[in-house]
Amino acid sequence: MRAPTSGTWLVLGLLALWEASARFGWVDSPNWPPVTEVLRALWQDSVTGELPARVGGSLYRMAAGLLAGGAAGVAVGLAFALVPLTARLFGLVVEAVRPIPIPAVIPPLVLFLGLDDPMKITVVALTVFFPVLTNTMQGVRAVEAEALAMGRTFGIGPWRRAACIVLPSCLPYTLAGLRVALGLALVVTVVAEMIAGEQGVGSYLVLMQFAGRAPEMYATVLLLAGLGYALNRGFVALEHRAIHWWFAMGR
């Protein structure tokens, strides 16, 4: 069994400080419960099935948006990098939409798509699209010219070169963009659920706030922190398996 790292001890120390600050009155607020009460609330809501059901719904919406936005980002990034005409035609539109804050996009999407899953998935997809697009384009630019020249020498057509040479070469960059997008996707999913809808972790968090149930509210925040950490660790493990050759080269 691996020994706890310094980061683990820091987290445990902060939790202990939280417990002491609430128990000994260092923070004089009725809305600052001890961490043991928060963990108890987290356990109770998990056992009843309330939180697992909401987490499952949030993960479904996040995953759907991540897949849609990631696929679109890779496709458009390859098109922009390999076919300059597409960048000249659509580059201005992409650059104009990129700076718009995602929360500002939610109200118009509510009018068009309503409050259900299509709106939330679209918001997540838009969030994921831009980091994947940018990293994919950067990855295409990093492809060695000698590899492309060798492909042309052997008579490999442009589409096959893109699939067999360019895409594998830029995969580390694309996965790096997806890793950034993964964290953003979780954040935006929760924000969308907080603003619109009655399902998911975000809606539950707002509901506990309005109900004045501080332990359940903080329990949801801790759950989101743990969920984000677990998703990141899982993606890193998947990344190391998918591009093991990249890490073997000491990249």
Rank of each mutant, 00 (worst) to 15 (best):
G65Q: 02
Y60K: 14
G57W: 09
L82S: 09
R54C: 03
I121H: 10
V93H: 04
A53G: 13
V93N: 08
R88M: 10
L85N: 05
V105D: 01
E50D: 14
G70S: 09
I102E: 04
T48P: 01
L92F: 13
G57T: 08
P108Y: 07
M62A: 15
L111S: 14
P101Q: 07
T127M: 13
V97D: 05
E95C: 03
A53M: 09
G49E: 05
G91H: 10
F80Q: 06
V47Y: 05
A64W: 04
F90K: 04
V97C: 13
D117I: 14
G69Q: 00
A79V: 12
T127F: 11
L92V: 14
P108L: 12
M119R: 07
L113G: 06
V55K: 02
I121A: 08
K120I: 05
I106P: 00
P99E: 03
A79N: 06
G69F: 00
A72Q: 05
A104P: 00
S58V: 04
L115N: 08
F129G: 04
L109D: 02
F90E: 02
G49C: 08
P84R: 13
G73D: 03
A81R: 03
T122A: 15
Q44Y: 06
P103Q: 06
L126V: 15
T86K: 02
V76Q: 01
V128M: 06
M119K: 01
L115Q: 13
A81M: 04
L51H: 01
V74F: 10
L67H: 01
A104L: 10
V94Y: 05
M62W: 09
I121T: 10
Y60L: 15
A53V: 11
